[in-house]
Simulated scan of single mutants.
Amino acid sequence: MLYLLLRTASTYTTCWSLLILINKHLLTLLPPVHPTRYGLDAECRALALELCATWENAWTHRPIGAWHMWFGLVVAYEWCAEDVQGWILGGLNWLLEEVGCAGWRWSGELVEAMGRKLMGEGDWMGSG
């Protein structure tokens, strides 16, 4: 049963993350005042909240693998309110601590850089 929950959470996370990335790309193609922009923006924000809720649920029912959720949290980050962004950073860094990674931490700047890299923009470490 836990394996099924893991697969479901991972599938939703990947699907919602890809939808956000596609919508984000579509937003770059639309004129600044196009009415479709508002719907795409709203969908990205709603999907970001679903990603956060899925991560929280996955972690509550561990060991089903909140480890697989970092991708969705990185994609969701820019679409969330500031307090939720802080929660995301805390979760990502907590996961690092759980696996014994003592020398590296996520920051808002690094999450945003990773988000840009996922869109094919700039350098992963934030230099572009």
Rank of each mutant, 00 (worst) to 15 (best):
M1I: 08
L2P: 07
T13R: 04
T14G: 11
C15G: 05
N23P: 08
K24D: 15
T28N: 12
L30W: 08
L30Q: 08
P31H: 04
P32C: 05
P35G: 05
R37C: 09
G39E: 09
L40I: 09
E43T: 12
E43S: 13
R45H: 11
R45E: 12
R45I: 08
A46S: 14
L51E: 03
C52I: 09
A53D: 15
T54N: 15
T54E: 08
E56W: 03
W59I: 01
W59E: 09
T60S: 11
T60G: 11
H61C: 05
H61K: 07
H61Q: 09
R62F: 01
I64R: 03
G65F: 00
H68C: 07
F71I: 12
G72R: 01
L73E: 01
A76K: 06
W79G: 05
A81T: 13
D83G: 03
D83H: 12
V84C: 11
Q85I: 05
Q85T: 08
W87Y: 10
I88M: 02
W94S: 10
L95R: 07
L96P: 00
L96F: 08
L96S: 10
E97H: 06
V99G: 04
G100K: 05
C101Y: 09
C101G: 03
A102K: 14
G103D: 15
W106C: 06
S107R: 13
G108K: 06
E109M: 11
L110V: 09
V111G: 02
E112P: 01
M119L: 15
G122E: 00
D123E: 15
D123Y: 02
W124K: 11
M125T: 13
S127A: 13
S127Q: 14
S127C: 10
G128L: 04
